[in-house]
Amino acid sequence: MPARRKPTSSSFSFTRRRFLQGVAAGTAAAVVAPELGRAQLQIDEEISGQPRVAIRLRVNGRSYRLSVEPRWTLLDVLRNRLDLTGTKRVCDRGECGACTVLRDGKPVYSCLTLAVDAQDSDLETIEGLSADGRLHPLQEAFVRHDALQCGFCTPGMVMASKALLDRNPQPSLDDIKEGLCGNLCKCGTYTKIFRAVQDAAQTLRRS
């Protein structure tokens, strides 16, 4: 068993520039430095001594090679290893839908998917929907109709909506309810979501 290490005294690389952006950038302020300290991570991994396996994930059209513990869920890996934090962890048990991603086009719960078990498929997260910096018509419709409040369920809702419209471009209200009912919202935005999805469907059909 490795000896217990003294707590490291090295200062962390919290960049001052990032730190100050919070105020300057207004509502879009992203204060967080996403780059993980690689060297430190490696040390941490060695310390923990948990077995790892090498995997490959295809997310939003990009391939990632990663070394993961078999018990890590796809959700954990997206959020904490790939810094794709748009996919949210809420219940961690497949009871809310906030972690919804598309796997080969179908909505699934990434909290109930092991990362090792997500290889060989095309994964799409909320970040993939506006990868070019422009919002997808669905996202625009969500904003236009105020189909969000706290926003924590929103990425999952948008992804489930995308899967629905890909499958059924002209959904009825009941189709929308059936298609999106695996996503829970606590603020109570459902009514607005119905409108947003109907509107987006129209926009998408026109284009």
Partner: peptide, 13 residues
């Protein structure tokens, strides 16, 4: 709607 909004859950340093 884009997942850009950083919540406390999303802060990884």
């Amino acid at each position: 709607v884009s997942g850009r909004a950083k919540y406390t859950h999303d802060v990884n340093l």
